[in-house]
Design a protein around this nucleic acid. Structure first.
Length: 577
RNA sequence: GCGCCCGUAGCUCAACUGGAUAGAGCAUCAGCCUUCUAAGCUGGCGGUUGCAGGUUCGAGUCCUGCCGGGCGCGCCA
């Protein structure tokens, strides 16, 4: 609908080169918007005010000239000037009718743009360390990332989704030690489990399934000469001893078995949550040359230097607060080196726009990664970090206490089992991602108006039930008749609903551009509200065949828009509730 | 101390990247089922957008400084 207005306005501007010259290449798309107040028409543009200063003319004078040059269109009833110089467009009923017909014609494709010549996007999200099951915080990342991916695709972007598996480094060793200790414990040894190890019950479960001969070692051997005054030093010593006792191969095998077990659980969990990825990128694989390549490329560009035996990256050249070590004196590369290499590799794989969904606690590293990309000659804004704030669970009015350290966290799986996938997916994205999320378990489960999941789904199901009722009354639905008699839709509820439905493609575009799935949730709630109001105010199954079919066609289109929107969020659209 | 995010109705949140009189739900108060699902609808009450300046035709939105909350500031990952 908005694109119609854009075309019409563009024609006027083309006829006025002295105006369009000032605008140069600016898109007029974001100078046109929906009005808030229906008295101001349906669309408005502030273009006259924007031009006023440069042209040295009054906004009203400009507006008058623009209006004079607008082509005739049966999509518009009238255009007027109001306020400080707004040009307000009042669209015709015909325009709404055509849009309604378009919804029915396009069906599940309505609101989706065909893939265009847009940047190829690599969307990385969740990427939780494979050291344990996903918890409710990761669930928000999963829901947000998945929905964002769907939105971007609907908006015409080409999107690949990737999960970065942090399967290298110290944390993997800690995982290995944790497993090993639980295996020994199962063999009857008793001891105090190290504080820095992973405490969750899943460690015991995995330990029981690991197939490895550990008779070479024992707890007493492992704990030999291990410092116990510092938990970090203690765990490092345990790692060292484990490798010594078992041999590096055997220890690695235990570690990998644990990793595979956990990763399998994560994959299964996400799949059950309808969150899918095109690729699972292993951090370990970076050591097969990519890190070396990246570091060599940096060196070629003079972006690194030696100091204190370390290799440093000149990240301060790109606005970072300090230079960063990429290779330690002991020859080991840092995590940061992996990160640079990983993002360098993303670009090398042909992606133009890198979107990372990160926990808000990772914001500190965004500039560093951007600095890395810039050092390779890529624009800093080719990488975009979207920060997701924390989730707090509430049961009724009570906060659910969680602590990752002690292993006492609510898992995503538990949440899904308790409230269901639909409620979880919608609740996770109904708030702006940069806001803390209070997730009320009781509300998510409740079958009431307060629960937006049920409210929206019910609107969809209610429409379906009208069509069931139609059959019970031995009546038939004829869409052709409906489309031919849209002029019978004269009630205020009907006009309002038609207007709102026509906004759907704009909402998809907006939500994608702003990376804001919650915009879509709010919109769908509004549509559901209008449907329920309409339902209460008027009877659809009336005697008059033309009117009946027109109304049924309108609610059919409404149902289509709700289904399309819900599918982007990853929520089902039930036929019956 | 430095950096990032946030502060909007009693509560939880919107506000179309600067637009016209800041909107929803919950709570509360008053109504609506002989009728396609009352898992619904209608109306009332509720605001100095944390505070103070600034930018301009116009600010919840942008800039500066405070106040308050969250999170970061390792050769950890």
């Amino acid at each position: 609908m908005k694109s119609n207005i854009e075309k019409i306005l563009q024609q006027a501007l083309t006829a006025l080169p002295e105006y369009s010259g000032v605008l140069e290449n600016q898109s007029i798309n974001n100078m046109i918007e929906r009005t808030r107040d229906p008295r101001h028409g349906d669309f408005t543009t502030n273009i006259a005010m924007r031009l006023a200063k440069t042209l040295g003319k009054s906004p009203k004078e400009i507006a008058t000239t623009v209006i004079k040059n607008l082509p005739d269109s049966d999509l518009i009833n009238s255009v007027d000037i109001a306020g400080a110089g707004f040009i307000n467009f009042h669209i015709s009923q015909l325009a709404l009718h055509r849009e309604l017909a378009e919804i029915l014609k396009s069906g599940s494709a309505y609101g989706r743009k065909a893939a265009r010549n847009t940047p190829k996007v690599l969307l990385e999200f969740v990427s939780a360390n494979p050291t344990g099951p996903l918890h409710v915080g990761h669930g928000r990342h999963a829901a947000y990332g998945a929905t964002l991916g769907n939105l971007l695709e609907a908006a015409g972007y080409q999107v690949d989704r990737e999960y970065y598996v942090n399967d290298a480094g110290r944390q993997m060793d800690i995982l290995g030690v944790s497993i090993l200790l639980r295996m020994l414990e199962k063999n009857g040894e008793s001891f105090t489990f190290p504080e820095a190890g992973y405490h969750g019950d899943y460690i015991r479960t995995i330990a029981a399934s690991v197939d490895e001969d550990i008779s070479d070692t024992s707890v007493s051997l492992l704990l030999d000469s291990v410092p116990n005054n510092n938990k970090e030093e203690m765990i490092d010593a345990l790692i060292e001893n484990s490798e010594k006792m078992l041999g590096a191969d055997k220890f690695r095998s235990i570690r990998q078995q644990a990793l595979e077990s956990i990763l399998e659980d994560i994959k299964d969990d996400l799949e059950g949550f309808c969150v899918t990825f095109n690729s699972w990128f292993s951090e370990q694989s970076l050591t097969d040359g990519l890190i070396d390549d990246a570091l060599a490329a940096l060196e070629d560009r003079g972006m690194t230097y030696q100091k204190d035996g370390n290799v440093w990256f000149r990240s301060t050249d790109f606005g970072d607060s300090k230079d960063r070590v990429v290779v330690r004196a002991n020859g080991k590369t840092t995590y940061f080196a992996s990160d640079i290499a990983y993002h360098y590799g993303k670009r090398k794989r042909g992606y133009d726009l890198l979107i990372d969904v990160l926990g808000s606690d990772h914001h500190g590293y965004v500039n560093r990664v951007k600095a890395g990309l810039e050092a390779f000659g890529y624009a800093a804004d080719s990488m975009e970090a979207l920060l997701v704030q924390f989730v707090t669970l509430y049961r009724g009015g009570d906060k659910v206490q969680m602590s990752t350290r002690s292993g006492q966290f609510v898992t995503l799986r538990e949440l899904r089992e308790e409230v269901g996938n639909d409620a979880a997916r919608l609740f996770y994205v109904m708030r702006s991602n940069d806001q803390h999320l209070d997730f009320d378990l009781e509300l998510a489960k409740s079958n009431s108006t307060d629960n937006p999941v049920y409210y929206i789904q019910y609107a969809h199901a209610r429409i379906e039930s009208v069509f069931r009722q139609l059959k019970d009354q031995s009546l038939e639905y004829n869409e052709g008749i409906g489309v031919e008699h849209f002029e019978r839709l004269t009630e205020s509820h009907e006009k309002a609903l038609m207007g709102s439905l026509s906004r759907y493609p704009e909402i998809i575009g907006l939500a994608a551009t702003k990376r804001s799935p919650h915009t879509l949730v709010h919109y769908l709630r509004g549509i559901a509200n209008e449907l329920h109001s309409y339902y209460n105010a008027h009877t659809f199954l009336v005697e008059d065949t033309n009117l009946r079919n027109a109304r049924l066609t309108l609610i059919k289109a409404t149902q289509m828009v709700i289904a399309n929107g819900l599918s982007i969020i990853g929520v089902s659209a039930p036929a019956e509730m």
